[in-house]
């Protein structure tokens, strides 16, 4: 699969003049002012930029969690802006994994059950769920913690469970909005190594928002946002040297 230096040219995601306006009337606020962006299949992209520049807004649109106000969003050549709620849900279920800054695990629910949840909605039976759930936990190094609830896990462990949940369906794209935002630098590096591994060895396209250049250094492509627009895109040829 695609790794450093051999990024496939075919874009899996295309944004064309994407705008997003929150609210309406005099209080309306345009968070995205016409974003054009291509993400190549197999790429590892870091999204950076000052606070309020529209990074999360873009990620939410890419994750089909929110809809653009204007412009085009093509995912695998499908015009996502024309899909309805349920179709977007199915797209998320099939092709996308999302990791949040705040983990967003179900409370009082074991790590394994959290990880199994997307498979449950996909309709896998219990045996398959167990196997894939455990495999995903193993990948993030938490297979021994499968029966612990979020309250019994550290922040870094919780984020790893969240990553396991995001990859358990073998998605095409993994979206992570400040996945290390709540973690110390040591835990952050662990998460970054995990994402790099998933990108290199499982062929998952990774999009990650981060404020820290140290974390962005793990990515192959760095997209800089400013004032609701893409300011510039850097290719990081020394990607992975931190690993």
């Amino acid at each position: 699969m695609a790794g450093a230096g051999s990024v496939a040219p075919e874009p899996i995601i295309r944004l064309r003049g994407v705008t997003k306006t929150y609210g309406d009337g005099p209080t309306a606020f345009q968070a995205l002012k016409g974003v054009d962006l291509d993400i190549a299949r197999g790429d590892f992209v870091a999204v950076m930029g000052p606070s309020g520049s529209g990074k999360s807004t873009t990620m939410n649109i890419l994750g089909c969690l929110d809809v653009p106000t204007g412009g085009e969003f093509l995912f695998k050549d499908v015009h996502v802006e024309t899909l309805d709620r349920d179709q977007r849900a199915l797209l998320r279920r099939k092709y996308l994994g999302f990791v949040f800054q705040g983990f967003n695990l179900l409370s009082r629910t074991s790590a394994l059950e959290n990880v199994e949840l997307p498979l449950l909605y996909r309709g896998d039976d219990k045996k398959v769920r167990r196997e894939r759930g455990m495999a995903a936990l193993e990948k993030v190094g938490l297979d021994k913690w499968w029966d612990h609830t979020p309250a019994e896990l550290s922040g870094g462990q919780q984020q790893r469970v969240a990553i396991a949940r995001a990859i358990v369906t073998a998605p095409d794209v993994l979206l992570a909005d400040e996945p290390t935002g709540n973690l110390d630098s040591e835990r952050s590096v662990e998460i970054m190594k995990l994402l790099t591994d998933l990108n290199r060895n499982s062929g998952i396209t990774v999009l990650m928002v981060t404020h820290e250049p140290d974390m962005a250094a793990f990515a192959h492509t760095v997209v800089h946002f400013k004032d609701g627009l893409v300011e510039r895109i850097d290719q990081n040829h020394r990607q992975g040297e931190a690993v």
């Binding site: 994750g63 969690l65 709620r85 349920d86 849900a89 199915l90 998320r92 279920r93 099939k94 996308l96 999302f98 967003n104 695990l105 179900l106 949840l117 997307p118 909605y121 996909r122 949940r165 995001a166 369906t169």
Partner: peptide, 16 residues
């Protein structure tokens, strides 16, 4: 509501 959000985010359809 947050739980509902999580379920929707990981691919549940609203009617589920």
């Amino acid at each position: 509501t947050r739980e509902i959000g999580i379920r929707l985010a990981i691919g549940a359809v609203a009617r589920e």
